[in-house]
Design a protein around this nucleic acid. Structure first.
Length: 439
RNA sequence: GGCCCUAUCGUCUAAUGGUCAGGACGGGAGCUUUUCAAGCUCUAAAUCCGGGUUCGAUUCCCGGUAGGGUCACCA
């Protein structure tokens, strides 16, 4: 039996991180079984469906690298003829009927189509949860369409899943209570019952269902913040599933190989951006220095040579978890010393444990820097030039004032890195200013 | 409230009818280092409660409690 699953977003909101994980689980399960995924836009609600949401979902999926298999995306709004056919059958069989109503809200109809509830206990097997039973009596005769031309979600889903040959319905736990009425409709149209798997919800800090009121929940927002798609995939896969080993970092291929739907957790999991940041940092390290360069804010690279940018990128990579951190820290003034000449009290130039005066050291450092050839003016080249002197005179005595002269800060990257980023000319200028300040 | 689902460190989770209940993030301490960052090492921290079953339950059963989901002419 070929596995067929589906991505059935309703374009009534931006691409949510929780939906992304549900799609990911569908994706992993289907790929490992050599199956097919049907992408289907559930836009039967014309008022709430918006093209911008649809675009956001598709863009987000592409960015994450989650693929589907139908070249043309199915669209429920174009399938009314099909639903109508099934509605007519259900009515003809006596399983549904036209019902007179008293409209209470705007837009409500005086006549709708209600399903004739057989009032029985429905039991289905959930791959994640085992047997689940519902008594459908409490559901009453629920509405399945506003008219023959306007089906409601439950009807269209069941018809589509049947027509498209869906074998596995993998969806969020919030869909579990929809299952009994959908099974009832399946039975009415004589469709086989797919296998169900209800994955636990992603929760906010307060353990409620993660939603827009909890801040960043859109995939696009994480993309804008500078997260790597691989990191998000990796983190999301681990939220509610694990391979049973200590491994935490996986490629998509590894996930496809190791994922096990039946081992998915039953309880909801709180989304931790803290941990996502850690995963992302691991991926940043793998991507390396070259990958950081395009993301460095232009203010920091302006007028800098390739060697300088290289040193800058190395320094930044060590300090960030997400590319967007560079922008955040820049805005916070974290890198002001790279943008303008530092201002600091001259006492700062003296290391608190110093045994000698900084002025002479700074003068000597100046002349050592002077002698470095342009192509050796790198972090390691500068270190090579200065370190023997620093070791001879006391590392703190020499390096502390050098670093402060370049950054004007108690805490900053090391002086070799700073010198390489600033460039020879600026480095010398700053060292000379420091000497002048002391003199 | 009805119905459904769930319950191991703060968080994500592993494990077994018998272990010092393991790992990761985050926290704390230390090492390294001119400072910061990074790195390394160490450390604190959990089986919701009450009954059973059992020689023995975190694990199996029942009850409670707590949390979540869902109860549309939305999806």
């Amino acid at each position: 039996m070929t596995v067929i699953t589906r991505f059935p977003p309703s374009p009534t909101g931006f691409f949510h991180i929780g939906r992304a994980r549900t799609f990911l689980f569908n994706y992993l399960f289907t790929r490992q079984n050599g199956g097919k995924i049907v992408f289907r836009i559930e836009d039967t609600d014309k008022e709430r469906s918006k093209i911008e949401y649809e675009k956001d979902i598709i863009d987000g999926l592409r960015w994450l690298g989650i693929t589907w298999d139908n070249a043309v995306i199915a669209r429920q709004s174009e399938r009314n003829e099909i639903y109508k056919k099934y509605l007519q059958k259900i009515i003809a069989d006596g399983n549904a009927y036209l019902s007179k109503e008293t409209p209470e809200k705007e837009g409500e109809r005086a006549e709708v189509i209600r399903f004739k509830n057989p009032k029985k206990v429905v039991t289905f097997t959930d791959i994640i949860r085992g047997e689940v039973s519902f008594d459908t009596t409490d559901l009453g005769d629920f509405v399945i369409a506003k008219s023959l031309e306007e089906p409601i979600y439950h009807l269209s889903v069941v018809v589509d899943d049947f027509e498209m040959g869906v074998t596995h319905v993998i969806r969020g736990e919030d869909g579990i209570s929809n299952t009994p009425r959908q099974i009832l409709i399946q039975e009415a149209i004589e469709a086989p019952r797919p296998l169900y798997a209800h994955v636990p919800l992603i929760l906010a800090e307060d353990r409620s269902k993660l939603s827009a009121r909890h801040g960043a929940v859109g995939v696009t927002e994480y993309r804008t913040k500078g997260y790597l798609p691989e990191a998000i995939i990796n983190y999301l896969a681990l939220l509610g599933w694990n391979p049973g080993t200590d491994q935490e970092l996986f490629t998509l291929e590894e996930l496809i190989g190791k994922f096990d739907l039946a081992k998915v957790q039953k309880g909801g999991a709180i989304f931790s951006e803290e941990k996502l940041r850690w995963v992302n940092k691991e991926y940043l390290k793998k991507a390396g220095v070259k990958a950081v360069i395009p993301y460095i804010p232009a203010e920091l690279t302006k007028g800098k040579s390739e060697l300088q940018i290289q040193a800058l990128a190395e320094m930044l990579l060590e300090r960030i978890s997400v590319y967007g951190d560079m922008k955040t820290e820049l805005t916070a003034g974290e890198y002001d010393y790279l943008l303008k000449k530092p201002v600091y009290p001259k006492e700062m130039l003296r290391w608190k444990k110093a045994k000698s005066e900084p002025q002479e050291h700074l003068e000597n450092v100046c002349s050592l820097v002077e002698k470095i050839s342009p192509d050796a003016y790198t972090v390691s080249g500068i270190k090579e030039a200065l370190f023997p002197y620093a070791e001879a005179k006391g590392k703190g005595d020499v390096l502390w004032p050098t670093r402060v002269a370049l950054s004007g800060k108690e805490q900053s990257p090391d002086p070799f890195t700073l010198a390489a980023i600033l460039g020879k000319e600026e480095t010398l200028a700053r060292l000379q200013s420091a000497v002048k300040l002391l003199g």
